[in-house]
Computed example of a mutant assay.
Amino acid sequence: MGAAEWEATASPAAPAVDGVPEATVQRLPTYLQALHALASAGVTTVSSSELAESVHVSAAMLRKDLSHLGTYGTRGVGYDVATLVHEMSAVLGLEHDWPVAIVGVGNLGRALAHYGGFSSRGLSIAALFDADPSVVGTEVNGHTVHHVDEVPALVARRGVRIAVVATPAAAAQPTCDALVAAGVTSILTFAGATVRVPAGVTVRAVDLSSELQILGFHEQRKRSALLGELPAVARVVPAPEPAVRGSEGPAAGAGAGR
């Protein structure tokens, strides 16, 4: 399409949503966040170059991503913001209210329970679980913390299909096993441990320590590029002291008797 812009329309020959590449799916929430900002500012149309620049991708990549959703348009007009918001929300399943369970109500779990951005993205906290007796029974942002033994009953009763695991690493696998057995089919884990799940269950893992270590690697590379290689230190070899006549030792007597 070159530099030409297109107004968003649905193509009858659009590819199935299941055929959307994973890399495209990962970029859609970023596009949607930018579109919500534009809509809040009263912007009704946006060019691919403008939207791409706002999310730091190329216009060509953005147009290709949107084409996977069956989104094309009319030359010279640009994309309709409201239409894109609707289409991306539908693809991401945000037109439903997805109940979410959080297992592990330590510092991270509490922060997630207090996060206010879930509701605007079609997600809501349905249940909190922990194994610590001092935490069970307390309230966090209006939600009672239940014991992990109640996962099977409450998850099934409240129709939870998405869960967050914020437990210690050792508890990650049994926690995931219990969630899957209760009907959870999508898990986001912060536990920092690899977990095994049956086919049909989606797991996304976020290891905060590893992510920070990767940032440390990049910082080290930046520092090396900035400072460059340190100059080699020249080794200074002191000159030998002159021989003193009449002194004892090899310096004075060297060659004597020849």
Rank of each mutant, 00 (worst) to 15 (best):
M1F: 05
G2Y: 01
A4Q: 08
E5Y: 04
E7N: 11
T9G: 03
T9I: 14
A13Q: 09
A16Y: 00
A16E: 04
A16V: 01
G19I: 00
P21D: 09
E22L: 14
E22T: 13
A23Y: 09
T24H: 15
P29K: 12
P29M: 12
T30M: 13
Y31H: 14
L35W: 12
A39R: 14
A39S: 15
S40E: 15
T44P: 01
V46N: 04
V46C: 08
S48F: 05
S49L: 06
E50A: 15
A52T: 08
E53M: 08
S54H: 09
V55M: 12
S58P: 03
S58K: 12
A60R: 09
M61A: 13
M61P: 00
R63Y: 01
K64M: 10
D65Q: 11
T71M: 14
T74C: 06
G78D: 09
Y79S: 13
D80N: 14
D80S: 14
V85D: 09
E87T: 11
V91R: 10
D97L: 11
W98A: 07
P99V: 04
P99A: 04
V100N: 00
V100P: 00
A101W: 01
V105C: 12
V105F: 02
V105E: 04
L108H: 01
L112F: 06
H114C: 05
F118Q: 07
S120G: 13
G122L: 10
L123V: 06
L123G: 05
I125Y: 01
A127N: 01
S134G: 02
V136R: 06
N141P: 00
G142T: 04
H143M: 10
H147W: 04
E150Q: 13
V151C: 02
A153K: 06
A153R: 12
V155N: 01
V155Y: 00
V160G: 02
V165G: 01
A171Q: 12
A171C: 03
A172L: 08
Q173H: 08
G183S: 07
G183K: 03
S186F: 06
L188N: 08
A191F: 00
A193R: 10
V195L: 09
R196T: 15
A199H: 06
T202N: 05
T202L: 10
A205D: 08
L208Q: 08
L212N: 13
L212S: 15
L212P: 00
E219N: 15
K222T: 13
K222Y: 15
A225Y: 07
A225N: 07
A225T: 02
L226R: 13
L227V: 08
G228C: 02
A234F: 03
A234V: 05
A234K: 09
V236T: 14
P238Q: 11
A239E: 15
P240F: 12
E241F: 05
A243M: 09
G246E: 07
G246H: 05
G249F: 04
G253R: 09
A256M: 05
R258G: 06
R258T: 00
R258P: 00
